[in-house]
Amino acid sequence: MALRLRGRSFLHGMIVLLALAFSACNDDDGASPVTTIMPKGPKPEWGPTIKPEMQTVIEKLDELSKGVPLYTLTPQQARLAPSATDAVMAVMKDYNLPMPTPLVDTTGQRIPVAGGTIRVRIYTPKNAAASNPGLVYYQGGGWVIANLNTYDPSARALAEQTGAVVVSVQYRKAPENKYPTAHNDAFAAYRWVRDNATALKINAQRIAVAGESAGGNLAAAVCLMARDASVPLPVHQLLVYPIARYDMTTPSYAQYATAKPLSKPLMQWFFDKYLNSAADGASPLISLVNAPNLTGLPPATVINAEIDPLQSEGQEYAAKLKAAGVAVTSKVYAGVTHEFFGMAPVVPEAQEAQALAAAELKKSFQ
Rank of each mutant, 00 (worst) to 15 (best):
A221H: 01
L238S: 15
L224P: 08
E212R: 00
P265T: 10
Y246K: 07
Y246L: 06
L262K: 06
M248I: 13
R245W: 04
G211E: 10
V240C: 04
D247V: 12
M225N: 08
R206D: 09
P242T: 01
A278W: 00
A219M: 11
L262N: 05
A210W: 03
L218E: 09
K264F: 06
A244D: 03
A278L: 11
P265R: 06
M225H: 00
A199D: 15
I243C: 08
P251L: 02
N276C: 09
S277K: 03
K260H: 12
L200W: 05
R245M: 13
L262M: 12
L266Y: 02
G216F: 10
L218P: 14
H236M: 13
A229Y: 01
A214Y: 03
A278F: 00
N203V: 06
S213N: 08
N276Q: 14
P232A: 09
L224W: 00
L218R: 04
A257F: 04
S252K: 02
L233I: 06
M248S: 11
E212P: 02
E212D: 15
P261T: 06
A257Q: 14
T258H: 13
A257S: 15
N276I: 12
Y274V: 09
L218C: 10
G215K: 03
A221R: 02
K273C: 15
A244G: 02
M225A: 07
P265E: 11
S213G: 13
A226Q: 10
P234M: 03
L238I: 09
A257P: 10
I207M: 11
L233F: 02
C223V: 09
K201E: 14
R227L: 06
Y246W: 13
T250R: 10
H236W: 10
L275Y: 06
N203L: 09
L238G: 12
I243Y: 00
R206F: 09
P234R: 00
Y253W: 10
A214W: 04
V222W: 01
G216K: 10
Y256E: 05
D228R: 02
A221G: 05
L262C: 05
H236Y: 12
T250D: 13
P251N: 04
A208P: 08
P232S: 11
Q255Y: 00
S213Y: 02
C223R: 01
Q268M: 14
D228S: 08
N276R: 13
N217C: 11
A210L: 07
V240W: 01
V209H: 01
Q255F: 00
I243K: 00
K201T: 13
A214G: 08
P265K: 07
N203M: 10
A199F: 00
Y253N: 10
Y241V: 10
A208D: 14
R245Q: 14
N217Q: 11
Y241N: 12
A259F: 05
N203G: 08
T249F: 03
S230R: 12
R227Y: 05
L238Y: 00
A254C: 05
S263D: 09
T250A: 15
T250I: 07
A208E: 14
A259Y: 07
S277P: 12
Q205M: 08
D247L: 11
M248H: 11
S230N: 15
I207D: 13
L224K: 07
A229G: 03
H236K: 09
Q268C: 04
Y241I: 06
A210D: 14
K273Q: 15
P261N: 07
Y246T: 10
N203R: 12
I207P: 13
